[in-house]
Design a protein around this nucleic acid. Structure first.
Lengths: 205, 205
DNA sequence: CGCGTTGTTGAGCGATCATTCAAGAAAGGA
DNA sequence: TCCTTTCTTGAATGATCGCTCAACAACGCG
């Protein structure tokens, strides 16, 4: 018979996951040791393994959580703007600020891409998860673009799947460049140039 | 007194480096163990350490060699074409073929970017080397663009440093996308779209 | 206050990590 | 042929890897 909960865990799972995200995002999968994870989560190995099963399990859940947050952010930009293309451009420009280095948080590329590039030949499971996330994002982008086309924002002959792929490549490139020591001004200019690419796809009035 | 060379090494250093490049490019720094390096180079640890000093030393030299080869390839495209912008576009389109997966060689993103993203917070020396290479490439790109502007290929108001940054972001994005399971057609389309971005910067006649 | 249950702890597991080095093998000069 | 020098070999090093588990601590319940 299922009985009472004899003792409640001291930790808060979402908080734990955000700490894990921060560490893995910084150092990658291979670059984060269990010792560092224990320190970051302030948890002893037994508790970590009870909660997440393995280092792989923790990483996978952290990556999924990161992806959810990123998806939410993108969707926020798309929905808060009247025009989808405008929202997309605002999102791209905002990334220069988000990704830029500051006192508390260093500049970091997208964790999905970092994971894909690190693990594609060493850790197929993780790579597969990263690819799936990228495929989902691209699909969401394509659907938004399709809406934009319906609304007359984009030229009629626009291939939305193809444009979604181009935009995803832009996001990947822009965010990867952010991992370098680029100045905020340089990054802002770059984001602006990237965002301007979309103008070529707008419907002519 | 300096005397004779009693015994010549059995290996050929450039060949060794190319084998190391292949392994590190696939698996990254942390993902390549000395055991795998020994196997890839068909050399015992003593010889490896005698020749390169350390795993770090071998990686650094492999990365530098890779960068030289990549620089040579880019310059080849720029110099073989009458127009610099045409050469750049050809280069971008060719990358879809180069980076695409084939029977013998899998699809791989740029090793410089992979190194930067993997080591920026775990291995500052390597990250610094990768950043330096990226800075050099960008400088070379900017100089080529300056030439193109002189030749009237680009609009007079073009900011070549800034455009070089945009092009580098395109290369990074395109090559990173290649690490995914994208089909050759999708990659070709993407490369074509990326290359078309440059048209907006051409001088109007 | 036991009792059962569940979370926490940290020493310690075997495996693998990068690296070293004494001993052997291969070449040229005498 | 022997000596010297250089390269090769592979067992062994200490450190660290991800992970386990028996002992202990905290809670709800009767």
């Amino acid at each position: 018979m299922i009985t009472d909960m004899a003792r409640q865990a001291r930790y808060d799972r979402p908080t734990l996951l955000n700490k894990a995200i921060s560490l893995f995002w910084d150092r990658g999968y291979h670059g984060s040791s269990m010792k560092q994870i224990e320190q970051a989560l302030d948890l002893r190995p037994g508790s970590i393994y009870a909660a997440f099963g393995s280092k792989d399990g923790l990483f996978a859940e952290a990556l999924a959580t990161y992806a959810d947050q990123g998806r939410l952010e993108l969707m926020g930009y798309l929905e808060s703007s009247e025009s989808i293309v405008d929202g997309l451009q605002t999102y791209l420009r905002a990334m220069a600020g988000t990704a830029s280095a500051s006192a508390d948080k260093p500049a970091r590329a997208c964790m999905i891409i970092k994971t894909l590039l690190e693990s594609s030949r060493t850790h197929p499971e993780l790579a597969g998860q990263a690819e799936q996330i990228l495929a989902d994002v691209r699909k969401a982008l394509a659907e938004a673009l399709e809406q934009a086309k319906m609304a007359g924002e984009l030229a009629d002959h626009t291939d939305c799947e193809r444009l979604a792929r181009l935009i995803q490549a832009q996001i990947v490139g822009l965010r990867s460049m952010a991992e370098r020591g680029l100045s905020p001004e340089e990054l802002t200019e770059l984001a602006s140039d990237v965002s301007a690419i979309l103008d070529a796809y707008r419907a002519r009035h």
